[in-house]
Amino acid sequence: MKSIQVKYFSSLRDASKKDQEVLSIESPKKASQIFDELNERYHFSLDRSYIKVAINEAYQDWDTLLHGGETLVFIPPVAGG
């Protein structure tokens, strides 16, 4: 069993009511699969099509496989400036 650290920001933090959590995975999982599972649990207000994925502080595709040991962040539409 390996673990992934998930951090939450903006409306996703409001929905999950947590800054971060550690998820356990038995086998590699796509970022999209992890999002869908978390969305079932927390009912995020944003559809996946509005969100980007960051793995270890860099943007990646939704199809990227996570093997454990990564930091995963779902990035809602950013609003700097």
């Binding site: 920001f9 509005y50 962040v73 809602p76 539409p77 950013v78 609003a79 700097g80």
Partner: peptide, 28 residues
């Protein structure tokens, strides 16, 4: 750059500023 903006309004409501017209781009 991953920064998010929450606006607080005069009527005491608040909201995250999310550009939903920017599908797939995360642009705002």
């Amino acid at each position: 750059v991953p920064l998010w903006k929450k606006e607080f309004y005069e009527d005491e409501s608040k909201a995250w500023v999310e550009c939903l017209g920017c599908k797939g781009t995360s642009a705002s």
